[in-house]
Design a protein around this nucleic acid. Structure first.
Lengths: 230, 230
DNA sequence: GGATGTGAAGTAGTTCACAGCC
DNA sequence: GGCTGTGAACTACTTCACATCC
């Protein structure tokens, strides 16, 4: 059952905004609201109402002219588009400060994500129990898992990425400040803390306030050389 | 001395890639290389050579036709554009798992960023010494500082943002899963871990491999209603 | 020859403006 | 009246293709 198409392909910015809309809708549910309109969503998400409507129109036409969207349906549709009915296994490699913080964070492993195993190279860390999992040695890394998280230093990132791909991982979230190369078909996203700070400082220095704040969205290019297919 | 214009306004995607190029160039320096070309940078950064050249052309014309860029000059120019000669104070609010991990991370506070103070509401945490700073109570939050980092739960994020702005902070990095509203002129970037996972899962489910990976960059809209621009 | 720097073309995303429906 | 959904216009970013210079 490959699900009925699960809506057509959405753009990257749209995909990154849908979870925000969904969170807003959940807030409405919690407050007992039953309907929401694009202006309200936009206000809370920091985007224009038009953008909200354009984003949602990609999920099919389920709003009501004159009165907005039913929150329950909205949540449902976004969950469906994002595949929240699926659950999936997450491997975390690198159990230092950051790795530990992530697996213990209440914001991290939600909506179907399930921690499958933790790995590290450091013999002092291997064998420890973290978030209910015994940390295993990196050499023991095996699948299956859907998603891998890299929390190692930059120098190990490529090696870890290769191992993750070898274990069948289809997507990687990389916290190491290092671009990694992966085969086509594997998605990689980067969270680079020092770069975020540098970007913000650029705005401070150049007074780029006008278009301040923002809902996160990420973009990017690949591993292998982008053209000439790899 | 407002520095001579510091090059013209760069696009958001360009700004987010420059630190990556710089890191690559520093790797070359470390290996004793003295020159680098756009193809090499692009390969390692995961973007096309054209994009690299377009990005760098915004910093002025300092390459040499036929042989690329001198690494030392490249690093210099990027540092100049990004304001790396400035140092600035960072306040971190919320000293839970994540806040702790950040301030202890070697990737976080670099290139001019200087930890100025840590705050928390939890009396059990206040008074503790973390990363060489005694955690202070949130009510004692005062400036001056340039940049604030929010590592609190979502519910406190807006309150903390208001306090940070009150303390004179010009830019905020928000790890709480909550869009915050700030005055025009204050930049906010979001790092939302669960959203990153959800985006990756979307790609896994839809087999969006072709244009895989990606250097993170975030954007967004602000606080006030986005239209009616000022 | 070889790589930069950049007009011109192409592609993606956002915003406008309004027809359509409740 | 009010708000959705969407063609059309616009803006932003990327990629092509090549003149230019070492």
């Amino acid at each position: 059952m490959a699900t009925r198409v699960r809506s057509r392909r959405l753009s990257e910015p749209t995909i990154s905004r849908l979870p925000v809309y969904q969170r807003i809708a959940e807030g409405f549910v919690r407050r007992g609201e039953t309907r929401i309109d694009s202006r309200q969503i936009g206000e809370l998400a920091g985007v224009t109402p038009t953008t909200v409507r354009r984003d949602l129109s990609g999920l099919g036409s389920f709003g009501t002219r004159g009165s907005g969207y039913e929150v329950a349906v909205l949540i449902e549709r976004i969950a469906d588009a994002l595949g929240h009915d699926q659950s999936y296994d997450v491997i975390v490699v690198g159990v230092g400060n950051l790795g530990r913080a992530l697996v213990n964070s209440s914001n991290f492993l939600i909506r179907g994500a399930r921690l499958s195993a933790l790995y590290d190279v450091d013999p002092a860390v291997v064998g420890q129990s973290v978030a209910g999992h015994v940390v295993r040695p990196l050499d023991a890394l095996v699948g299956p898992a859907t998603l891998g998280v890299i929390c190692t230093p930059a120098g190990s990132a490529q090696d870890v990425a290769d191992r993750l791909v070898g274990a069948g991982v289809r997507a990687i979230l990389n916290f190491a400040p290092q671009v990694v190369s992966v085969p086509l078909g594997v998605a990689v996203h980067y969270v680079d803390l020092s770069i975020e700070l540098q970007i913000l400082m650029y705005h401070v220095l150049h007074g780029t306030g006008p278009l301040a704040g923002g809902v996160l969205h990420s973009v990017g290019l690949s591993g292998g050389s982008p053209r000439r297919g790899s």
